[in-house]
Amino acid sequence: MNMLEVKNITKSFGQQEVLKGVSFSLKQGEVLVIIGSSGSGKTTLLRCLNFLETPNGGSIYVNGEEVFSADSGKKLSDAQLRDRRLHFGLVFQSFNLFPQHDVLKNVTLAPTLYRTTELKKKKASKSEIKAAKAEIIEQGETLVDMVGLSEKLHEHPCRLSGGQQQRVAIARALALNPDILCFDEPTSALDPELTGEVLRVIRSLKDQGRTMVVVTHEMEFARGVADHVIYMADGIIEEEGTPEEVFGNPKSEKTKLFLAAGFNK
């Protein structure tokens, strides 16, 4: 069964049609890389998956469960939206770490709030909540260690380099253990010498079997990490296939031009 199934997603901003019917599917443990020039709709597609934008048409399934359908006509309540959103994690281009919290708190804040709210609903005792919090902190420390920043556990984001901040953002996105982790140009805001450390973390996540959707301009990286590549242009999937197919032997003229421009840079 497909872990993620996206069917015919459309999205317009006013008169401008940004997504003109995009469909794809993804199996557990697969990495999908989306490439394409600016304005092709890649980022909007990711934002639709994370419910930051509401598609005008189409539907999204996770593990066979419908998490979004434009046809149902029902507007989701905030609580429903939150629950469905947690199937996905998102790492932003500009990190968006919480500046007033240290690294560990950045990672543990959301899960702590989520768990304590749930436990309080169940009228759990204070000691149970305390135990849950301790457990989340322990998991948080493990995650920060995994991205190689255990020495920075109690530093604030402004004291970290861009690459380090993005690694914290990855740990933060993993803390709620999403089914599908999305990356929106995770290295575009970084100095070239800092991209490597972030890409290494993403590669290690692939080795751990994470299902991921990565929007990136790093073609070499894309080629290496992807199980499936989508090239988007003007709101549609212009070409897709294995990395060998798309990078090695592109069929569409647009793809050829895009790749030639990309590799010449």
Binding site: D78, R85, F92, S94, N96, L109, L176
Partner: peptide, 19 residues
Amino acid sequence: GQHEAGKVLGMTKWQIFRH
């Protein structure tokens, strides 16, 4: 971006404001 980061982490509007 701060609001969006809170949202994708499943926080409620109040939690985003407060924390």
